[in-house]
Design a protein around this nucleic acid. Structure first.
Lengths: 192, 192, 192, 192
DNA sequence: TATGAATGAGTCTTCATTCAT
DNA sequence: TATGAATGAAGACTCATTCAT
């Protein structure tokens, strides 16, 4: 077996792991992942030194995809919509993949160097899209990155762990986005 | 400490479990919980037949507290504020206790009868507060319970698993609440 | 509570233990025995220092009863029938009580002093009955105590652990007893 | 020792378990069995999912051997002796292996499908040998399978749990066999 | 390089026994 | 003296990881 076979195996394992983790959560066994990938456990370990590394790789791959998407949107989309489309994208991805992004965190798995880098990149990408949107008045000027991150994490986690129908997610995001838009009167409701 | 202190022991175990689970997540060991409670493992098992049952009891107790709070607010608070105050309360509780409410779900722990009942009660309490708030125009009329639940879950999970400073949580909720309030310029404006 | 109450409790525990052991075997729990006796575990331990001691007491009581019966038969019954009636009695008792006499042995429970004494008494009683029967020609003269003990143990254990209908036990004993009776031709069967 | 030696490991475990169970009874620990087999506990569990399954496998293997022997005797031995030789064989095996056949039963371990099948085969094999022996007049015609089974079980259990010298077992079986042979003076003589 | 059998530390859970009330 | 809550050692079983083939 030559290099390309090895790469193919790596991909199979990654895909199987993503599926199995989505189904069974963090407790999924390495044997099961190997079985689904159609390889032996040994092969899983050849590509990912530990279970934790396998998880990290999955998350990392996903984040890379999202970062690409963010870069693409910044160029291709209007500043008014880029931010919102990216936000929705992340949530949709969470709902689809159910990769337990934060379960990793809650399970006490340490964020390693690479992840820290990605985390920073993600913040930056989001900050860029947010700044663009605020510049053109699509997002109220008084919100800052921390709130955005909290909202994005919350929405993603809910989508990931819940079992919401697509329209519910849409309506939920609609509310969220409305909260982010600028309008005349905030704190005190109209008729109060 | 015997006989009449059995109840005290149960409480000690419950408290220790809440703490330990908050710190170490679902993987916390029963021995550790026992040690922190200052009792033997056997005592933990005398009160909670199973690790799962212990988790369930923690969640159950917390939900009961929240349900009480909901009932109290419905009577004591203005319809304009009751809903929002309850929402904030739940999130604050999640941030403080970190009891992994949803981690239970993601770990595949089945929701038992009692929990199903509580779940229904929680929906009802929230529906009541929401209806009150919508009646007096404090919440836009076009949002429904499913979205509310999704937003509440998302916000709670973020607060639970994240490490946000109090002001960040406040600002995040402010955005969320703004999204829930009625104002002139919503996606499809009323008169359009 | 005065002495007689204590005695009553001891009897209740003994009876309950006999029942529970018959139903659940050696693995029966002390709590269950206490529950059936209508007392607390502590009371069981007041009368029997260990689980083993409780077992020993049950066996001991039974053996005492059998020894009484042996003595009675030696006086009241004909020498021809005394031995056989006693043998049948022991087996019937085993079938009825299912007290796991030998399971104790197989579980590695040591035979203590008292038991050793009873064992000796049982051997002696059986030897007496056997001698009487052999003297009057009811039992073939070439069998000795060891074989008798082996046969008795085997028959008792089968009765104890099996689920034989009464007629099966009768027919089984009939065969056994025929083997013990003297007749003209032994080893080589008639038509051989 | 891998891959092709997996079968060898299974055999080692089986052998060790037979020994250890013979020595320590049902309470023997899985760790001890593993240690004696020279493998890790995990290996024991790889081959036998459960302690119970391990017991079942031991018993099953032994019964298979006995069934082979029964088949062999039916062909190779005279009808007069086949039945008796098989009976003696079973008892000797019990005395040698001390595998606690019936202790399993008394421990409340359920007889599974496979075992039920073997049980039926054993009955059949015994019935065949008995019928042969009765046809040629080597066994009295008025005994039936249930009695035979009870006698065989009793003798095996006594041999298994007791500590009888070989001559005692021989003399015990001699008595038993005499009881099974036809002779003039049985309880109700034919012509009475 | 791939395989999967082997390993054994780690964990939940049970239950005989103790002891404060 | 009776009670039953508390104890914690013991044991069955799991599963991430290793390594001989």
């Amino acid at each position: 077996m030559i290099r390309s076979d090895a790469a193919r195996n790596r991909a199979k394992v990654l895909a199987a792991a993503e599926t199995v983790l989505g189904e069974q959560g963090l407790t999924a066994r390495m044997d099961e992942i190997a079985r689904r990938a159609g390889v032996g456990v040994g092969t899983v370990y050849r590509h990912f030194a530990t279970k934790e590394a396998l998880y990290a790789a999955i998350v990392s791959a996903r984040v890379d995809l999202l970062l690409d998407e963010a870069a693409r949107l910044r160029v291709a989309a209007e500043p008014q919509t880029g931010f919102f489309r990216f936000f929705a994208q992340v949530v949709a991805d969470a709902a689809r993949k159910k990769t337990l992004t934060d379960a990793l965190h809650s399970a006490g798995i340490d964020v390693k160097a690479e992840q820290a880098g990605q985390r920073a990149q993600m913040r930056e990408a989001l900050a860029d899209l947010l700044r663009d949107a605020q510049r053109v008045g699509a997002v109220r000027p008084d919100v800052d990155l921390p709130e955005i991150l909290a909202l994005l994490r919350g929405a993603s986690m809910a989508a990931e762990t819940g079992d919401y129908a697509s329209p519910v997610i849409d309506r939920t995001l609609a509310v969220l986005f409305d909260g982010l838009r600028p309008h005349a009167l905030h704190a005190p409701p109209p008729s109060a």
